[in-house]
């Protein structure tokens, strides 16, 4: 039987099941923690490092999305130190890609852009890398612009865990990491892709988008995920 634990998050007395993560319990208590990779309905992976929190008694910062709650835990989600690191993380995400909001299909509806605004990122203090990355528009309905990818792997997980197609995966390491379809073949030639579009809807930026969209025209609808997951649990 799952036990219930009590803990403190930002000086609020909170309770949660012991198999829940800090992020889940925080959200249940109305505490928002910035995140790009975590999404309700998908297995957490701790990739984006934006949900890092301070936990008393632990020297290092831990991702709220993959850390389980424990009895007596004291968590800080919004200290100056955390805000500083989060701003830095966002700046690095911007610097290592080519994020040109002004011409992007999700301008005004982008999770990365929203976080930057919310965290007060008004300048990028590190030099831009300007990587050269080609757009894959070979799919008849969707396109991948790796310039806008933050490697959150939501597409990889939704495709594998929910759709069961496992078209998406990661290749290479470090700065060369990239999401790929099948064995790095053009998306349009993928044998496994079912064209369901789930990856496009969960992508937090304009990296995956519907073709034919002009600037600011794409709205991502990731809400299907929770409904779908719940329906499956119910056996409907």
């Amino acid at each position: 039987m799952t036990r219930v634990v009590t803990l403190k998050i930002d000086d609020i007395d909170a309770t949660g099941r012991e198999d829940e993560t800090v992020l889940e319990v925080a959200l249940e208590h109305g505490i928002q923690i910035p995140r790009l990779c975590a999404l309700e309905g998908l297995t957490p992976v701790g990739a984006c490092r934006l949900c890092l929190v301070e936990i008393e008694g632990t020297g290092r910062l831990l991702p709220a999305c993959t850390t389980r709650v424990a009895e007596g835990m004291v968590v800080k989600t919004n200290s100056e130190r955390l805000r500083k690191y989060r701003r830095m993380t966002i700046e690095m995400l911007f610097a290592e890609g080519n994020h040109v909001c002004s011409v992007c299909v999700v301008n005004g509806r982008c999770e990365l852009q929203d976080l930057a605004v919310r965290l007060g990122v008004d300048h990028i203090r590190i030099p831009y890398l300007y990587p050269k990355r080609a757009v894959d528009a070979s799919h008849e309905r969707f396109a991948l612009d790796p310039n806008r990818c933050v490697l959150c792997t939501r597409c990889v997980r939704v495709c594998g865990e929910i759709e069961g197609a496992h078209t998406w995966d990661l290749m290479s390491r470090g700065i060369d990491s990239a999401v790929i379809t099948d064995l790095h073949t053009p998306w349009g030639e993928s044998d496994t892709c079912t064209t369901c579009g789930k990856c496009v809807q969960v992508c937090p930026t304009g990296a995956l988008f519907e073709k034919g969209m002009a600037v600011g025209e794409m709205t991502k609808r990731a809400s299907f995920l929770a409904t779908l997951a719940a329906s499956r649990e119910d056996g409907r």
């Binding site: 002004s102 080609a134 600037v215």
Partner: peptide, 14 residues
Amino acid sequence: EGRPFHEMPSLMAR
């Protein structure tokens, strides 16, 4: 070069 053509109006406006 290499950009989707639907981006052109907003890109070229710049």
